[in-house]
Amino acid sequence: MVRLITHNLLACHAKGCTSNNFPLQLKDVQVELRDAEYNADFLRGFISRIEWPALVDAARQLGDTSLPNEPPEMMDDDFLQKLHHVLLEIHIEEGAMICPNCAHVYPISNGIPNMLLAEHEIG
């Protein structure tokens, strides 16, 4: 159950991997859609935390093209509904996330990403 809200917060944490380590690239992913409770206040409060281009890219990669290139100045309900869907209703179930810097592969199986590092990757 990696949703794009979480993917947008996640950088690589392998030893020495401190730049160009976000966003993790999605590979061979399978997604499932699941309804989540809509909360406009949460979205309005959260939007400043989003790395927007990374979110738009990830969503488009998963076939959702509903988000504009820039977050709009007017956050009307129509926009917030789309944001809600992208952030909270698309679940990555299988596949992998790959660090663009060190190429560490974080496999996702049964909805759970494996974030464990090998001994030599621990900082």
Partner: peptide, 14 residues
């Protein structure tokens, strides 16, 4: 969202 993670290895959250 659930992650398989060893907290002693640290987090990568922004």
């Amino acid at each position: 969202d659930l992650f398989l993670q060893d907290i002693g290895q640290g987090f990568g959250f922004r």
